[in-house]
Amino acid sequence: MISKDEVKHIAKLARLELTEKEVEKMQKDLSAILDYFDILKKAPKIQIKTGKAGKNVLRKDEAVERPASLANNLVAQAPDKKDGYVKVKAIL
């Protein structure tokens, strides 16, 4: 069983605000799910060759012409914007 404090710590890392009730339910659900994961301990051990998983696919480093409407459409979706820019809160 994972503790309530652990649940709160993970929620903070995940940037999720949870109510006290949600924390309780999450504690129960996560514990059951993590217990279920124990089955993997029985799986045979293998070595995965790291770095051989696939090959890199790169595009050319060049500007691609896209319609001007795309930028407008994207900015239009921002909850807070000004003069075609997305407004962000001060970080410091």
């Binding site: 929620a11 940037r15 999720l16 339910k25 799910i33 962000v88 809160k89």
Partner: peptide, 30 residues
């Protein structure tokens, strides 16, 4: 504060199963 915008938007915006999976994933990667 910016952090509270994240916490609140995501806390209210995501449903129970999505939160559960984000939590499992965050745990497994932590």
């Amino acid at each position: 504060a910016l952090l509270d915008v994240y916490l609140k938007s995501r806390g209210v915006g995501f449903g129970a199963e999505v939160k559960r999976r984000i939590m499992i994933g965050t745990y497994a990667l932590s």
